[in-house]
C-alpha cells in the first residue's frame, strides 16, 4: 500500500479528505504511483503531469523521506519506506505566492 499526500486543491478536486492509499502493481516508482493515482481519480489527469509527455508540471514537486525527488527519473524506484507505506509520497504545490 502506497500512501500519497495531495495538496489541498487536488484533494478537493478528487473529493478526498486526507491521505490517499493506493495499491500499486509492480515496483513503486513515480510513474507507477501516478498511474495508479490517475486511474483511481481520473479528474487529476493533467493536473500533476502533462497528459501526453507525462512531464511534471513546473509548479508541482514530489517529496518523500525529507528528500526532493522531483528530478528523479519517473521509473526510478521510490524509497523502500515509501514502497512499504511507512512514509508517504507527497505531491506538493510550489510555494510561489498566488
Amino acid at each position: 500500500m502506497i500512501r500519497v499526500v495531495l495538496p489541498a486543491h487536488l484533494r478537493a478536486l478528487a473529493h478526498v479528505g486526507g491521505e490517499v492509499a493506493l495499491d500499486v502493481q509492480g515496483q513503486a516508482t513515480q510513474r507507477s504511483v501516478l498511474d495508479a493515482l490517475e486511474t483511481r481519480y481520473p479528474m487529476l489527469r493533467g493536473t500533476i503531469r502533462d497528459h501526453v509527455t507525462q512531464q511534471r508540471r513546473a509548479f508541482v514537486r514530489f517529496y518523500a523521506c525529507e528528500e526532493d525527488l522531483s528530478h528523479d527519473q519517473p521509473d526510478a524506484p521510490l524509497p523502500e519506506s515509501v514502497a512499504t507505506g511507512a512514509e508517504p509520497f507527497m505531491v506538493v504545490g510550489a510555494m510561489a505566492g498566488g
Binding site: 495538496p7 487536488l10 479528474m43 493536473t47 500533476i48 509548479f59 504545490g93 498566488g98
Partner: peptide, 8 residues
Amino acid sequence: STGWFGQL
C-alpha cells in the same frame, strides 16, 4: 485553472 495545476 491555476498556474500550479493547469486547466480543468
